[in-house]
Nucleic acid binder design. Structure first.
Length: 341
DNA sequence: CCAGCGATCCGCCACG
DNA sequence: GCCGTGGCGGATCGCT
């Protein structure tokens, strides 16, 4: 039984911040957190001397690509060298990891490395808004969603800008260990556990020009996430945004990368998970609060996307927080695969 | 498991 | 012609 292994891939000249984000979240052991923490290795094609930001800093990278081969999660932070394509040996290692079933994540323009490795083909992905257009042009098989903080495609995750790496990293911790642990990490880093008040994944990012905060879609999103109990048909949502249903669907997809229905379901499930983890409310009540018509539909949709029942889910997390890292590996690796589509 | 039915999603096209 | 909008219809989804 061993800890979840995280390999952070560095190009020959790397960018400090994104690497620091990965190290801060996955590499720092926090005594108050009582689950077995990640085992982080920084690696590169040729281990040894490397630089950060040109001549700003020299560093020694201890591991080679074998760290990728041994990892459960591979993180590709910003590659900083936009001109030169990634090393073919690194791409091959990433491909191997992918076929092996490892989880891959990129921050910022690290998405280009994943795209070059081919693991984004046919998937949704995001990158820094500055590069979104180029990513889509160079890799037409990648469905680029430029306006989200991050995209979770299950085994392949991509974060948009620099700081949204924090959001994605916390999201992964949440998937692995639950909202409670993610919150502890966030608290220790003094960042909000979830941008936009506890809602998930498809929050709009700070994209420069579309920055009208009073945009109809955003208003509808904000309203619904604060009034999650209650049902919303497509027509209702369109009314909240003062738009026709057709236009609303269109604007919605642009702003969030998903469809209204899927977004709503995802919001409801995320909230339900939090309630399961943090409260003793009966399933019936949670179903009501999170806007599922009945406990039956709640259980059904929950099982459909998380592959467990609400009660099992709750029990798994309760077990985790009470048992001090005993037999955590099995449960956490099971939970690791839980994800919302 | 299948049928039936309404809701949703999205391509296509017309309008201003 | 361009762009944003919204109506229509068909494929598909998800519920009963």
């Amino acid at each position: 039984m061993s800890a979840h292994r995280v390999a952070v891939f560095l190009p020959a000249d790397f960018s400090l911040f994104e690497v620091a984000v990965a190290v801060e979240v996955f590499g720092v052991r926090r005594p108050e957190i009582e689950v077995e923490w990640y085992d982080v290795k920084l690696c590169t094609v040729e281990p040894g001397p490397a630089t950060a930001h040109g001549d700003l800093l020299g560093a020694i990278v201890p591991h080679g690509l074998e760290a990728i081969d041994a990892a459960d999660t591979v993180i590709v932070p910003r590659c900083a060298t936009q001109e030169s394509p990634a090393d073919e040996r690194a791409l091959a290692a990433i491909r191997r990891a992918h076929f092996r079933g490892a989880r891959l994540a990129s921050f910022c323009d690290g998405a280009f490395v994943l795209a070059a490795a081919g693991v984004l083909d046919g998937r949704k992905a995001t990158t820094h808004w500055k590069y979104a257009e180029r990513l889509a042009a160079e890799y037409p098989r990648v469905q680029v969603s430029p306006e989200v903080l991050y995209v979770d495609e299950g085994q392949v995750l991509t974060a948009a800008g620099t700081a949204s790496g924090v959001d994605l990293a916390l999201h992964m911790v949440r998937a692995d260990h639950g909202a409670h642990v993610a919150r502890q990490v966030a608290r220790s880093m003094v960042v909000p556990p979830h941008r936009d008040g506890g809602q998930a994944q498809f929050v709009m990012s700070a994209v420069p020009d579309g920055g009208e905060t009073e945009d109809g879609v955003h208003r509808a999103l904000a309203y619904m996430s604060h009034h999650l109990d209650s049902e919303y048909s497509l027509t209702d949502m369109a009314k909240l945004a003062f738009m026709s249903t057709r236009n609303f669907s269109r604007r919605f997809r642009e702003a969030t990368g998903t469809t209204p229905g899927r977004w709503l379901l995802h919001q409801r499930l995320t909230r339900a998970r939090e309630l399961l983890e943090e409260t003793d409310l009966p399933i019936e009540r949670i179903a009501q609060i999170t806007g599922f018509g009945s406990a039956v539909t709640f259980r059904q949709r929950f099982a459909q996307s998380l592959k467990t029942s609400p009660t099992t889910y709750r029990r798994a997390f309760r077990g985790l927080s009470e048992a001090n890292s005993v037999s955590l590996e099995d449960e956490s690796s099971e939970l690791r695969t839980l994800r919302v589509v």
